[in-house]
Amino acid sequence: MEDLLTQSTLVQLRVNGKLHELEVMPFTSLLDLLREELHLTGTHMGCMTGHCGACTVMVNGRIAKSCIVLASTLERAEITTIEGLRTADGKLHPVQQAFWDEAGFQCGYCAPGMLMSAVELLKENPNPDDAAIESGIAGTLCRCTGYRSIVRAVKAAAVRMNSPEA
């Protein structure tokens, strides 16, 4: 059985569309891998216990807190980080645009959590009411805003995404 045990392991990650083959140490969190190996520092560290959500990314189309995802368990995965939300031509995702226009954030440190949560929520529920937004962003802490501007921004994003031009 010893031949199964390795000191590092190979993962294939397609991050924001770009394929990376990486040999990772067993203990590395996805957060550290993204920030320190791939230099994608838009994903933030806030607690390392999975409570604050500032480290949120999308793993295989579903949002996750990257600080509590062990990178070595992602044998093959598709990752989208906050840097990957923009379209290839650099245009902001409607959720990003709405958060900026509506002053959704103040310091913006929680942005990975709020933006990713809103993207996933709006995919599932294009017209969320207050309660749906509250539970949709429940996994992310914001300390600046008292959340009301964030709710406003998610609603504005919904309107944009439902409009024919979007």
Binding site: T41, G42, E83, W100, F105, G108
Partner: peptide
Amino acid sequence: GRGPVTGT
């Protein structure tokens, strides 16, 4: 406010 929403 643009930097935080783009992660830059």
